[in-house]
Write a protein that binds this DNA or RNA. Structure first.
Lengths: 222, 222
DNA sequence: TAGATTGTTAATCGATTAACAATC
DNA sequence: TAGATTGTTAATCGATTAACAATC
């Protein structure tokens, strides 16, 4: 009954909502809730039931009329759609503060992603260990990638070298990039995918909202 | 000519684009470009000229027919809209790896935000210094907030305590939250604003795209 | 069977793009 | 003035919501 392989034109908006479904389903499992209707879920998630049904139906008829959705099997389906069951492998390029923080972050493991290598160009930190992994010189990246099947490169380099780093890694076969550098990177070819985090933009969106709430009296207490 | 204070119903989509305009304008300034048309900018940014004109016009008539936009004054306007000229103050709650990485991050300074305090509950790190600031005990937060005018709290606590932390801080008058904990926090009142980062969702959106490109053959090389 | 709830079509709403008159 | 380009209205496109027949 599922047409998960038929997913033609799933809109960006739907995809952005999937991880949230994933998180709520995980929570329902934790709460030992075996079954849920779109209405019940919609109240928990603060969206419309209609949207939930529409979203899920992009990928297949996961529900059952008169019953709702089986929480566990829906979780499995969405995990599959999101690739959580794929055991993707990742490397981190740029072991500054952010790179190090990500290396420790349980996020990857929780999403079924294994961090397989850490790279930098700074000789003073190459060789040191983070969480069982040794920071390697970027000079060895080509060699490393020949013997390791890496799906995702986390880009935590300075902005100035982010573009060339992505180009280099894509030449060595990496297809997925999680970009924390503030650079706008246009991808050299269409097989590649990049997810830009742009923390600065997020922070500014927050500042906009705060500024809007507290009209103009400039708060400079220097 | 500007009606910046008349900004009634600016859509979320427009607001999300503002930081990107901000970044491009900064770049134009760096390149010593004094004036730009919506068409030229649209080509650089890969959006339509129409969208640029629509977006900017939400906030005021910043351009001039036959001429285009003055880069510098447009930058000043957008900076103002985004509150970059407000000198907001921030604190970071939770000095784990991510909290520490953010404390070092030049992001805040670049957006005109000063980090004024770092807090944790772990006695083993309280008192240690990061980037000129001493990590303080969360027990002293109320006192601290009485004598410091803080606009933004960066939430890098564990998920389990994020909600109560936000509630506590909002009682002490903090209005803006930049939330890195994976928790979904519904705000206790309407004056507050929260910006959720959800790194895990971003990572999964990337995984979805990668999974979609490399059909199902499960890559488990354990 | 009757009740519940989905899957799905149709209606509405909002956002993007196109077009062009206004104007520098 | 003529050319360029905005501000803004109208047209299009896409996404969300409502409604309901299908069905468990």
């Amino acid at each position: 009954m599922t047409n998960k392989e038929t997913q033609k034109n799933i809109s960006k908006a739907v995809i952005r909502r999937l991880p949230r479904y994933f998180r709520y389903l995980r929570e329902l499992i934790r709460l030992d809730i075996a079954r849920i209707s779109s209405k019940d879920l919609s109240e928990r998630m603060n969206v419309t039931a209609s949207q939930i049904r529409q979203d899920l139906n992009c990928f297949g008829g996961f529900g059952q009329q008169g019953y709702g959705y089986n929480v566990n099997s829906l979780y499995v389906e969405i995990s599959h759609i999101l690739g959580v069951d794929r055991n993707f492998n990742a490397i981190i390029i740029g072991m500054g503060n952010l790179g190090r923080a990500l290396a420790w972050n349980p996020l990857f493991e929780k999403r079924g992603i294994a961090i397989k290598g850490l790279f930098d160009i700074d000789k003073s930190i190459i060789g040191s260990k983070i969480n069982d992994l040794t920071i390697m010189s970027l000079d060895f990246i080509e060699e490393f990638l020949k013997s390791n099947n890496i799906d995702i490169a986390v880009i935590t380099t300075p902005k100035s070298v982010a573009k060339e780093t992505v180009e280099m890694l894509s030449k060595f076969g990496i297809k997925g990039f999680w970009n924390f550098s503030n650079a706008e990177i246009d991808l050299p070819n269409k097989d590649l995918v990049i997810e830009n985090v742009h923390l600065g933009d997020s922070l500014m969106a927050l500042c906009y909202e705060i500024a809007k709430k507290t009209p103009t009296q400039s708060v400079s207490e220097e």
